[in-house]
Write a protein that binds this DNA or RNA. Structure first.
Lengths: 359, 359
DNA sequence: TTGTAGGCGTTATCAG
DNA sequence: CTGATAACGCCTACAA
């Protein structure tokens, strides 16, 4: 790889001049400027980001820390962040934490040694990142938290309006006549989980519906968690007529459990998800879900970062993105007590199909 | 951030000794060593990867270039790569190309200025990456291609046995009695697409089944492509009794098209996918699909890279991972000519459900 | 407007 | 076995 010195020699100018041309740090007269640019072009020269970063105490990298790319909600956020970062000439260093706080700390410490311009983090568990973040800020890097918030977080945030989304969904469910609801929340120590639960409870309280605590189960945000807790809920008496899942992965697990118990959704039991993943419309039946703008969460976070990098040092920003309920076919009218029992015996072949009902 | 000089002062040794301790580049006597380690620990010192990279002409970053994280097959590969990279102390810089060759080139050129130890790339279109890769290799970075291969590629590769997977799937379909098949391939210039098509054709040829070229359609590897081409295939006479989709996203699109046309799968028409995404079991009906090990593709690629970094300079490796067909409920017996026409009129309420049939 | 030189934090070479 | 010292490639006062 050619370096600046060679370009200088090639263009017949000094090293400093090349740098000035490249960075616009001093106005260089046209003829010289052109000679430099030509040399750069002909050599295919690209400045070493490493050397530049070392000198400037800051690289054009952005650290992105997420729980797991493999969880279908996060790629959208990553993609959003990458798109605006790329546009501004920044690159993303991706780190998965598996919701393991220790791994998160390791990543943050490691990342700092690259002198990134910023950090976008979807925090793992109830981690207090204040210390690490502070250390980043001291070294001039901005930090923005996305989707969920760590304890005591006082920096920039981008989240969805989880409470409102859950509230709307619950109200929709109630309007269908359901009285015996259940919810499978995500991990209680994640703020998005608790806010969804809050919205759910608020809607119930407004309608004066009381729910035993056993009807609110906690699970990991994955298919397995949804499956296991659904099985548990289905054994309760009275059996819930609808389950509100803390996210779509949990809902998918619930669907699996329904199928295994010979229950047909929405005839025997209803289901509502959260996230509105692309695949929600592919399930059987298509899943009603609260849609939250993952891609936009990513772009917004990166945009805030870009602003910070460019010197915005105003007070912390707290962007809350809107949610919307997306109605499909997974919520029906509640079944009566009778139905509850007959439907428990899987009478598969005799049941009418729902396929194709939509549109 | 503390630097090495401060650690040296703190430990009362010279800067060089600190470096030796940290890198094991010379055996330092225990008492001194301990003093250094203590100083490091108490200062929470971490060496600057930037400075180290500049000096060593190589960082512990690995570039990973993929078409799009948002496409559910790729995150698994990324995750696999990240896991083994992380384990070895390497970090992943993630770049999306959107299958745009120009963007791919930009990324590769940019990435090089970070002096990464290696590059894992899932090439976009029929790009010839030889030049860029050569330039990477010259600067001491290893490059391995995954999933699909660019033109004239002569380096390390990790792919799935696409041809065999498609061959097996097609044979399974034929054994169910289907004679009127159709395939929606991915983009023809991607090697994985062409190999899948090859497997499909080989199975047909062995059974002496001839297929008009109009029954082989090309689409992008996404839902929309599958949807559009399925609609097209459904209008053909005779109508295919089964569609083999080039990947699961295409299959999902086909499912949508079926639903829209009032066709029930697998009673009216059968479908086979490729990738075996997690969500294949959630669709209606659960989708039969060729499973290919995405996560393992990632780990294998990263492992090869690690070996190369550690000095393995043997001939190019070509790892081909096995595929397996995963049978679910989306392929049935072919419908007779009669059924083809009656089933065209959606008699929804009268159709027997398939739900719960599995297990 | 252009050129010179010092230093960013490491590693590696080479004397002691 | 330990400690100076010279790069690595770039940016940026500062001098010309």
């Amino acid at each position: 790889m050619a370096n600046m010195k060679e370009i200088a020699k090639l263009a017949g100018v000094s090293l400093g001049t090349v740098s000035h041309v490249l960075n616009g740090s001093a106005t260089v007269r046209e003829p010289l400027r052109k000679r430099v640019m030509d040399a750069v072009a002909s050599a295919g020269y690209q400045p070493s980001q490493l050397a530049r970063g070392l000198r400037r105490d800051k690289t054009n990298m952005i650290g992105m820390i997420i729980p797991d790319v493999t969880n279908p909600f996060f790629p959208a956020v990553v993609r959003g962040a990458e798109d605006v970062a790329f546009e501004h000439g920044y690159r993303l260093v991706l780190c998965n934490t598996d919701n393991d706080h220790a791994k998160e700390i390791v990543h943050m410490n490691e990342l700092r040694t690259y002198l990134p311009s910023g950090l976008i983090v979807i925090p793992s568990s109830f981690s207090d990142l204040t210390a690490q973040a502070e250390s980043f800020r001291r070294s001039g890097a901005a930090v923005v938290c996305v989707d969920r918030l760590p304890l005591n977080w006082n920096g920039d945030t981008v989240t969805a309006d989880n409470e409102k989304g859950a509230y709307d969904a619950t109200n929709y469910i109630l309007r269908q006549g359901h009285k015996q609801l259940a919810m499978i929340t995500g991990p209680r120590h994640l703020t998005n989980s608790t806010n969804r639960l809050k919205g759910f409870k608020r809607a119930l309280a407004e309608k004066k519906i009381h729910l035993g605590p056993e009807y609110i189960q906690e699970a990991n945000f994955d298919q397995h968690g949804g499956y296991a807790k659904t099985l548990l809920l289905l054994r309760m008496i009275p059996r819930p007529t609808v389950i509100f899942a803390g996210n779509d992965m949990i809902a998918f697990g619930a669907l699996l459990a329904f199928r295994e118990m010979g229950l047909h959704c929405p005839d025997d039991i209803s289901l509502f998800g959260f996230d509105n993943l692309d695949l929600a419309e592919m399930t059987s039946p298509p899943l009603s879900s609260v849609s939250q703008p993952g891609y936009q969460m990513g772009t917004t976070a990166a945009q805030i970062l870009m602003d910070r990098v460019r010197g915005d040092d105003g007070p912390p920003k707290h962007v809350v993105l809107d949610t919307a309920i997306k109605i499909r076919d997974s919520v029906g009218k509640p079944v009566t007590g009778d139905n509850v029992h007959t439907s428990r015996t899987p009478a598969r072949a005799a049941r009418v199909s729902r396929t194709g009902r939509k549109r």
